[in-house]
Every structure is written in C-alpha cells, then in structure tokens.
Design a binder for these strands. Structure first.
Length: 396
DNA sequence: CCTCCACTGGAAACCTAGGCTC
DNA sequence: GAGCCTAGGTTTCCAGTGGAGG
C-alpha cells in the first residue's frame, strides 16, 4: 500500500460526513433507557425482586428465551433501577456471564471478587471457595442478588454442584442472603438439572419470546435515531437489517450489530447515507469475520486437522484423514494425537461450522464420519500460513 | 434376516501446570 | 517441601451401531 492510497483513505474520511452521532448506542454493552416490547417482563422481574427493598429475600428466578430476546438487557436494566432505589451498602448485585467465566470455579471467584474478596485463579477447593464467599456475605450483612447469565452453559460443562451449593447456602445464611437470577438460552436445560436445585432455582419463571420482524424494526429505528445523524440512515436499510436478523430467529443483538457495521461500511465508503447495499455488505462481512476469527484462534492441533482435510477437496472419512494428519504432524514436528481425539476435534470443528462432519454408515465398510471442508481453500491456506508451524509444509 | 466393518462416543483415568495450607 | 486442591486437554478402554453385502 503506497502513501497515495493512505492519503486517499484519509481524504475520503475527511470529506465524507460522519454518519454516526453516537456509536456507543449500538455496542453490546449499552443499556437502553427503555426496552420496547419488554414491559411485561420488566415489571414481572421487578415484582419478584421488590421484596429486597424492605429487607426480605426475593424468590429465585429463572429467565428463558433464545439469544437476543432481551433477557440480559432486561435483567440488567431492572437491576440498575433497583440499585437506584437503595442508597445503602447492603445490597450487592452481581452479574456473571457463566460462559465467559467458563467454569464453576471462575464463576464463584467472580462473585467473590465483586464482594471484595481476593481469590486465586485456581487452587482452592470448591467447598473452600463457597464457604469463603458465604462468610463474606455474613460478615457484611449484605443482601446479594446474583445474576447467572447463560446458566445452561454452566450446567452442561460441569455438574450442578455450584448451583446446589448456592441454593443451599441461601437457606443457611443469616444475616444476609443470596438470591439467584438464572438466565438460560436453552429451553430444555431444566431436564439435566438436579430436581432439588431445580425446584429451588425456579421458584419463579419467565419466558422471553423472540422478537418479530416488526418489533425488530421498531427497536432498530429507535436505536438508529440515537446513533445516527438525521437522515444518515434510510428506513429501507433499517427494515432490511430487521429482516435479515429476523430471519435468523429474531435475535436483537445481531440486528443491532448489523446496524452498526452497516454504518461503518457506509462511512468508510464515504456515503451520505446508509443504504441497502451497505447492509448487505455488512451482513457478508460479519459472516466472513466470524469465520476468520474462528480460524485464527484455533489451537494448533485443530489447524493441523483442518489442513489435513483440505487435502481432500471432495471429502473424506476419519480413517483416511487420520493418515493425512499423521503425515502433516511428522513433517511439521507436531505431536500426534490419537484417533479418538482427532474424532473429537472434528466434532468441534463441525460445531464451529468450519467443517461438515456427519456420521454415515457404509454397510460392510463400517461407520465413519463423512468430512467436508466448508471454507475456501485459499482462505484456509492464507490464514494457516500465518502459523510458523506449517511453514515447511506450505512450501512443498 | 444376519454379519460384520470402521469407526463412534461414553467413561474413566492420566498428565501438566497452576495454587492452596500447614 | 509435602500433600492437597483445580482446570483442561489428552489417552485408554470399550461397548455400541447403521446398513450394504452376503
């Protein structure tokens, strides 16, 4: 890229009018001043939590709904309003996303951290950790409302030990108490839960239906009004955003993301207005970015397996791929994993949408996974070439 | 209708790297 | 330092299986 190119980019940025008024409004962390179409849910949660204001313990609460239906936003919104009502120190609200926290341990540690405890990354037993947190709550006479977002993830990836512990400590604490608000994307996660935990956790339940396309349109229009300058966003572009996001299960978060990226695309191209074309480009870009990012952040072994599957443009099966994978490992000095593990990694790659690995039966010739690469060869090679491990191979 | 392939996928055990307490 | 904890990735072991070819 020459300096001329750079100049042209900057020049265009200077000339083109800034389309955004306040980009923040379209970031995932933004909590809107008002949540359209969620009044019923907001007030239901408020009803459940209200007792905390005169010192009694609210029921535990479970929120259900698919991604982007506003569960998290509503929960945080109500919590922040609740906070405004109490000026005392004795109400602590904690929000933990268990998927980001990743493990039971880190979830609890995060709770402890918000309470002001200093906890190590690892090393304590779960029991020890729990009792430390309990002690802190008692010592402070504090009331805690703990929001566990994506709680299904926690249950799926470990036991429900922590939930059991938390619901139990609930009963034992005094003074002070701990109320739980669980948020789940998965409507069936209840089935994998210990019945004791379930009955305690879901004293109250609330379901969030997906947004309809018309609802999305209104939400987006409102956000767009705050985020963009007047006239910088065509209404047909808003409708297109709503339609694209709506066709993917009424996910409001993705709709808002799409809106923001459309704006960025249009701004970069020096347009006066975000049009349908920008939205389409943004939509394609989001999909592309998702794949690139998934590829880049893959562990080395997963990359090696992808590389192996790229040797078979018309698809292959586990056994054949394992042989190719073995070759690649030998040539790049990589440790060779067992076939069992490779099979597991293939399932992971399938989940990421990088590879299609479906189990097929070939009668006499056994059962195996039919494996097909779902990403472009050139793209894969380009990104994997960034990894020094595969240098030797790429040259041949 | 039966066989038997080439795996699948569950379960448990193992290993490493971290950290605690005494 | 000994003896205990955890996470997370891996290996080991193995019972289970869909369906083409007999």
């Amino acid at each position: 890229m020459s300096t001329d190119d750079l100049e042209r980019i900057f020049q265009r940025a200077k000339q083109g009018k800034a389309l955004f008024k306040d980009r923040e409004v379209l970031t995932p962390d933004y909590i809107p001043a008002r949540l359209p179409f969620r009044d019923a849910q907001s007030s239901a949660i408020a009803e459940v939590l209200a007792p905390v204001l005169h010192g009694s313990k609210p029921s535990n609460l479970l929120l259900y709904g698919k991604t982007g239906t506003g569960k998290t936003a509503v929960a945080r919104y109500v919590l922040s309003k609740l906070k405004e009502q109490t000026d005392t120190q004795d109400l602590t609200t904690v929000y933990v996303n268990t998927r980001l926290a990743n493990t039971e341990y880190r979830t609890l540690a995060e709770l402890g951290g918000t309470l002001g405890l200093k906890l190590p990354f690892t090393g304590l037993s779960m029991g020890e950790l729990l009792s430390r947190v309990e002690q802190e709550i008692q010592a402070r006479h504090t009331r805690v409302i703990l929001v566990l977002d994506e709680i299904d993830y926690l249950v799926k990836n470990s036991t429900d030990e922590i939930l059991y512990g938390l619901t139990r400590s609930n009963e034992q604490l005094s003074p002070g108490f701990l109320s739980l608000v669980g948020i789940s994307n998965d409507l069936q996660f209840k089935e994998s839960l210990d019945p004791r935990v379930l009955s305690s956790l879901s004293e109250e339940e609330l379901v969030f239906p997906p947004y309809t396309v018309t609802e999305l349109q209104e939400i987006l229009a409102e956000r767009a009004g705050l985020a963009f300058r007047k006239g910088a966003m065509s209404s047909s572009a808003i409708n297109l955003c709503a339609a694209i996001a709506g066709s993917e299960h009424g996910d409001a978060r993705r709709a808002v993301d799409l809106l923001r990226i459309s704006g960025e695309v249009a701004e970069r191209e020096g347009l006066e207005q975000v049009d349908d074309e920008s939205v389409r480009k943004a939509s394609a870009k989001m999909e592309q970015d998702r794949i690139d990012e998934a590829l880049r952040s893959l562990p080395i072994q997963n990359k090696a397996i992808l590389l192996a599957s790229s040797r078979f443009p018309s698809g292959t099966n586990t056994g054949e791929l394992y042989i190719a994978y073995n070759n690649i490992c030998k040539r790049s000095g990589l440790e060779v994993l067992t076939q069992r593990r490779v099979s597991g990694i293939l399932a992971e790659l399938d989940l990421l949408g990088l590879v299609e690995a479906s189990v097929v039966s070939q009668g006499r010739r056994g059962r195996t996974k039919r494996i097909r690469l779902l990403i472009g060869l050139d793209k894969l090679e380009k990104i994997l070439a960034e990894d020094p491990t595969f240098e030797a191979i790429n040259r041949t």
